[in-house]
Structures are given as C-alpha cells and as structure tokens.
C-alpha cells in the first residue's frame, strides 16, 4: 500500500524547549495510525507540522505527496484536521457551521448525512456554546470530515468524553475508515489505541520509541503472562517450576500465581490435568499495551 504520510527526521523547537527531537514515521493508505505518548511528548507539535500549521526546524514531510507548507492550498482540500484547541463562534448553530464549512471545499461531503450519522440532527439549530462536550467533539469530527478528505488527523479525539460517548466515537471512526479515509489518531489513551489502531507510533521525549501493531508492541515488550488459580487439591511447586515455559511461582493464601511465557498456560493446564487437579477461579493476565508502553519507554503514561 502506498504511503500517505511520510515524515523524516522532524525536529521542532520552541523558544524555551525542544518539542520534537527526531520523529520519523510512515502512514499507509487506509490505515488507522495511532500516535501514542504522554502529555508533552511532542505528539501535537508533530501533527501540527504534518498539517502545515507549524514550520519544522528540520526534517521532511510529505502528505499525499504534497509539502504541507508549500502546497498548503491543495493540502487543505485533502486533509481534514480536528484540533484540540479549535472551537467555533459561540452563537453559530450546528447546521450553519456544517453548511458553511462544506462551502469551503470543492467536493464536500453531504453535510446533512454527516450530521445525521454523528447523531447531531436533533441539535441542528443549537448554538455551539450550548452543546455538551461530547456534542462539540462530534461536531468537530464532522467538520474535519465535511471536505471529503483523503486523510484525517484527529487530535485527542475522546478526551473529556464519558465512556459511553467515547465508545460511540470509536465506532464512528471505524466507519470513517471503512469509507476509505486514512486516519491519524493522536491519543494518550491505551484502550483507544488498542481498540482502534492498526499501527502505533510510541512517542516519548520528542522521539519515536517504536512503531508496530498494538499486538506487536506488546510482544516486543516481552511481558510475561500471569496465571492465577486455586488448586482443588494440594499441589507441589516442583510440578510447575520444572516446566521450561514457567519462570516463577508464588503463593498467596490458597492461590497459586504462575508466571511464564506465551505457552505457559497450555503447559500448566496439561500438568494439572495429568494430576487430576482442577484450577478453580482461573485467571490469566495478558500483558496490556499500557505495560508494554511502560516497558518500552521506561515512563508512565497518565501521571504526567
């Protein structure tokens, strides 16, 4: 698949600090590409450079083969952007905003269909200032899509939304992608990245730490599985610790906690079956993306 966005060695500093040290990444056509990292990692600055809103100090950026600064006029027709800090006039109504923004583009989407699709139809005559956070966010997404873009950049899509609204937004994004739009999603929510993204770039301290699928990142972090259960009959430790797949065993009260690699679960259940022991209250903990992130960056995600 052809690359839609290519970023090479992007570097951007502000007066007092370096926001982006060195970022390179490639986004393929039709994928949902996540940019994940803690606050202040340089995510927003990177996408602002991609959108041509900031001038990079160094590095090369191509979006749909265009230079975001030199070919701005053409780029704005193909790229939809939803910014964190982009609002509308307080008294502008939902339908007015969509109709107005649709008129900015040579081949706009049908704004009424967009308004219905985003569940804003009953708010058509509501002023922007009177919308809830979730409704503003959905309108913002609608405005990013109203120009029928090839690529959409969505920055902190679901920040400030309640869980229900967040899930609905995710569904919406999957629909948008199904319609052939390449999506760049900036987020600091692991769950969001895991659920939506085909590939992810982990950014920390202005650098790309890793680019991979969510599963690939988890695998890369080599985090062990943890298997926890209560044996129905007394169990000798050596039966399990002798297994090559198992790296450790601890007990907490009557619970046994075994850690090991991906195949540990199979090996452990086989041994238990042979010894006619039933694993009660069995629980298996997979490494999450969050743990992978901590492992790969040595940092924490939400605490900053």
């Amino acid at each position: 698949m052809p690359a839609v966005i290519e970023v090479r060695n992007l570097h951007k500093r502000y007066a007092d600090k370096v926001a982006v040290e060195d970022v390179s990444l490639t986004v393929q056509e039709g994928e949902i590409f996540g940019i994940l990292g803690p606050n202040g990692a340089g995510k927003t600055t990177s996408v602002e450079c991609i959108a041509g809103l900031r001038t990079p100090d160094r590095g090369e950026i191509k979006v749909c083969g265009l230079n975001p600064l030199r070919d701005r006029a053409e780029l704005t027709r193909r790229l939809g952007v939803q910014l964190q800090a982009g609002q509308l006039p307080d008294r502008l109504q939902v339908a007015e905003a969509l109709e107005l923004y649709a008129s900015f583009y040579p081949e706009p989407a049908d704004w009424r269909a967009l308004m219905h699709g985003l569940g804003l139809a009953d708010k058509a005559r509501t002023a922007y200032a009177k919308l809830s956070g979730g409704q503003k966010q959905r309108l913002s997404i609608a405005l990013a899509l109203v120009g029928n873009p090839k690529v959409a950049i969505l920055d902190e899509l679901t920040t400030g939304l309640d869980p229900q609204a967040r899930r609905e937004t995710w569904e919406l994004i999957e629909n948008v992608r199904a319609g052939g739009v390449t999506i760049v999603l900036v987020t600091h929510f692991m769950e969001e990245a895991e659920r939506l993204c085909d590939r992810l770039a982990l950014i920390d301290g202005g650098r790309v730490v890793a680019v991979d699928t969510p599963a690939g990142l988890t695998e890369r972090a080599r985090i062990e599985q943890r298997i926890q259960f209560r044996p129905s009959r007394p169990l000798a430790d050596h039966l399990l610790t002798g297994l090559p797949e198992v790296s450790g065993l601890t007990r907490r009260g009557e619970l046994v906690i075994v850690s090991g690699n991906d195949n540990a679960l199979n090996a452990v259940t086989a041994v238990l079956a042979r010894n006619r022991i039933v694993a009660e209250r069995l629980r298996v903990e997979q490494a999450s993306l969050e743990e992978a992130f901590v492992q790969l960056t040595g940092g924490r995600l939400d605490s900053r």
């Binding site: 699709g117 899509l145 629909n175 948008v176 052939g180």
Partner: peptide, 8 residues
Amino acid sequence: MSVLNTAA
C-alpha cells in the same frame, strides 16, 4: 451509521 459515502 453511514457517515461515509456522503459525497455530494
């Protein structure tokens, strides 16, 4: 939801 295929 058909947000897409909305080219006017």
